[in-house]
Lab assay of single mutants.
Amino acid sequence: QWKVGDKCSAIWSEDGCIYPATIASIDFKRETCVVVYTGYGNREEQNLSDLLSPICE
């Protein structure tokens, strides 16, 4: 189960590419979260089910 502060990978809606991110907040009722893309600072809402394991850098 994901928690705030977890590192993950998420698909950015603008280009469909996968980027490393950190979970900033979680809404368990809606099963969504807000991620912050590492190195970019962009925030975006994602479905918890769409999150991927962190990418090894």
Rank of each mutant, 00 (worst) to 15 (best):
Q1Y: 11
Q1N: 13
Q1V: 00
W2Q: 14
W2S: 15
W2E: 15
W2H: 14
K3F: 13
K3S: 08
V4C: 14
V4S: 09
V4Q: 09
V4G: 11
V4Y: 08
G5Q: 01
G5E: 06
G5N: 05
G5R: 00
D6T: 00
D6W: 10
D6G: 00
K7E: 13
K7I: 12
K7L: 12
K7S: 12
C8F: 01
C8A: 01
C8Y: 00
C8H: 00
C8V: 15
S9A: 13
S9Y: 15
S9T: 08
S9N: 09
S9G: 11
S9E: 11
S9H: 12
A10C: 05
A10I: 09
A10N: 01
A10M: 08
A10L: 09
A10T: 04
A10V: 13
A10E: 07
A10K: 06
I11W: 08
I11A: 06
I11R: 14
I11C: 01
W12K: 01
W12G: 01
W12R: 10
W12Y: 10
W12A: 03
S13P: 05
S13Y: 09
S13L: 08
S13A: 09
S13I: 08
S13R: 07
E14D: 03
E14S: 06
E14P: 03
E14R: 15
D15Q: 07
D15H: 04
D15L: 08
D15I: 03
D15T: 10
D15R: 08
G16N: 06
G16L: 08
G16A: 04
G16M: 05
C17L: 15
C17Q: 15
C17F: 09
C17K: 15
C17W: 01
C17H: 15
I18D: 04
I18L: 12
I18Q: 05
I18H: 02
I18G: 01
I18K: 02
Y19S: 04
Y19W: 05
Y19T: 01
P20Q: 11
P20F: 12
P20E: 11
P20D: 12
A21E: 03
A21T: 05
A21R: 06
T22Y: 10
I23D: 06
I23S: 06
I23H: 00
I23G: 05
I23K: 03
I23M: 00
A24C: 06
A24E: 15
A24K: 03
A24L: 15
A24I: 15
A24G: 06
A24T: 05
A24S: 07
S25Q: 06
S25N: 04
S25F: 11
S25T: 10
I26A: 01
I26V: 04
I26T: 02
I26F: 01
I26M: 01
I26H: 01
D27T: 00
D27W: 08
D27R: 01
F28I: 12
F28Y: 14
F28K: 11
F28D: 10
K29W: 12
K29A: 13
K29Y: 12
K29L: 13
R30E: 10
R30G: 10
R30N: 13
R30A: 12
R30Y: 11
R30D: 11
R30V: 10
E31F: 11
E31S: 11
E31H: 09
E31A: 13
E31V: 04
T32E: 05
T32Y: 07
T32K: 07
T32N: 03
T32D: 04
C33G: 00
C33F: 05
C33T: 00
C33K: 00
C33M: 02
C33N: 00
V34I: 13
V34P: 02
V34R: 01
V35C: 08
V35D: 05
V35F: 04
V35G: 04
V35K: 01
V36S: 01
V36L: 07
V36T: 06
V36Q: 09
V36K: 02
Y37K: 01
Y37E: 05
Y37F: 15
Y37D: 05
Y37Q: 03
Y37H: 02
T38N: 07
T38C: 13
T38I: 13
T38P: 05
T38Q: 05
T38S: 08
G39H: 12
G39R: 08
G39M: 11
Y40V: 08
Y40C: 14
Y40Q: 08
Y40P: 07
Y40M: 15
G41M: 10
G41W: 09
N42C: 13
N42M: 14
N42V: 15
N42L: 14
N42I: 15
R43S: 14
R43A: 13
R43H: 11
R43E: 13
R43L: 11
R43K: 10
R43G: 07
R43C: 13
R43D: 08
E44L: 06
E44A: 02
E44W: 08
E44G: 05
E44K: 03
E45G: 05
E45T: 13
E45A: 06
E45P: 04
E45Y: 02
E45N: 04
Q46H: 13
Q46A: 04
Q46D: 04
N47T: 05
N47I: 03
N47H: 12
N47A: 09
N47S: 06
N47F: 13
L48G: 05
L48C: 15
L48F: 05
L48D: 00
D50M: 06
D50Q: 05
D50H: 04
D50S: 05
D50P: 03
D50W: 08
L51Q: 06
L51I: 09
L51H: 03
L51P: 06
L51A: 06
L52P: 03
L52H: 01
L52I: 05
L52Y: 09
L52E: 03
S53E: 14
S53T: 04
S53Q: 14
P54M: 10
P54N: 07
P54V: 08
P54H: 08
P54A: 09
I55K: 04
I55S: 09
I55F: 12
I55A: 09
I55D: 13
I55W: 12
C56G: 13
C56L: 15
C56Y: 15
C56E: 15
C56R: 12
C56V: 14
C56I: 15
C56T: 14
E57M: 12
E57G: 13
E57F: 12
E57V: 13
